[in-house]
Computed example of a mutant assay.
Amino acid sequence: MRICFYGAGSKELKSKYIEEGYKLGQEIAKKGHELVFGGGINGMMGAVSKGVMDNGGQALGIAPSWINEFEPLKNSCTEFIYTKTMDERKNLFLEHSDVFVIGPGGIGTLDEFYEIITLKALNQHDKNIVVFNCHGFYNKLNETFLYMVGEGVIKRDMNELFQVRQTVEEVMDYVENPQD
C-alpha cells in the first residue's frame, strides 16, 4: 500500500513530534508499505522518511524543483518526482497514493489536508484519510470542525471524510483495517 504522509517540514518542530514521525516511518517499512511524501529532510516529513529508509522501506518524494530554495530535499528516496507547481505535486500525491496520513504540520500541511478532504467531500476520490493527532496536536482543529458542523457550514459527518487517531499503532491499524 502507498501511504501519503502530509506533515511539517520545519527544523524548529519539537522533538516529541520528530520521534513519533520516525516511529511511524519504521512501522510503514516493517509492514511493507511505501511512503509517498513531499520530499523534505526536516520536520515530520524528514522523520517519517528517515524511519522508512532506515528500515529498508521504499519512499517516493514529490516536490517542485524550486522548493530547494525554502527547504532541502531528501536525495536518498527510492524515487523522486520533480514538479513545476504545488498543484501538480498535490495531484501526483493523489494519483500515487492509496491512503493519506496527516501529521502535525503548518500552513502547507493544512493546505494539503483541506484539499484532500474537500476532494473526498466532492466525491473526487474515495481514499481513506487519517489524522495523526500525536500529543494532541490537532485537538483545537477538531474543536473548530465540530463548531463548523454545529453552525451548519459543514454538512457531512466529518467521520465520513476522515478519522482521527492518537498513536502510531492506531494510525497503522486504521490504515490497514479502515472499517474499524
Rank of each mutant, 00 (worst) to 15 (best):
H96M: 06
G51K: 14
T118D: 00
F100A: 02
V164R: 11
G40D: 01
A8I: 11
D180G: 07
K50L: 10
T83H: 04
Q26G: 09
N91L: 09
F132N: 13
E34G: 10
G43N: 05
K50R: 15
V101Q: 02
D173Q: 13
K90M: 03
G103L: 06
E95Q: 10
P178D: 05
D173C: 08
I129A: 05
Y138F: 15
V149K: 15
I129S: 01
F132R: 14
G51H: 09
G40E: 05
E34M: 09
G57R: 05
F113L: 04
K11E: 12
P72D: 11
V48H: 00
E176V: 10
F162T: 03
A63Q: 04
Y114H: 12
S97W: 00
A8P: 09
N68V: 11
N142A: 13
E69A: 11
G57F: 05
I116D: 00
H33K: 07
G61I: 03
K14L: 13
N55I: 08
N75D: 14
W66A: 11
N55V: 06
R2T: 13
G106W: 07
N177R: 11
E27Q: 13
M148L: 14
G21P: 10
G38H: 01
M86S: 02
H33F: 03
S76F: 04
V130L: 02
T83K: 04
A121K: 13
H96I: 01
C77D: 08
P72T: 13
F70L: 14
N128I: 12
E169Y: 07
R156I: 11
V149A: 12
D180I: 12
H96G: 00
K30L: 13
K74L: 10
H96Y: 10
T109E: 08
F80N: 10
Q179D: 15
F132K: 14
A29C: 07
G7S: 04
S76V: 11
N68M: 06
G51N: 09
L60C: 02
N142E: 13
Q166D: 15
K90T: 03
G21Q: 10
F145N: 12
R89H: 05
V48P: 00
E115G: 01
L13C: 08
P64Y: 01
E176L: 13
K120T: 09
L146G: 08
L110W: 12
R165Y: 06
N177V: 12
E115P: 03
F100M: 07
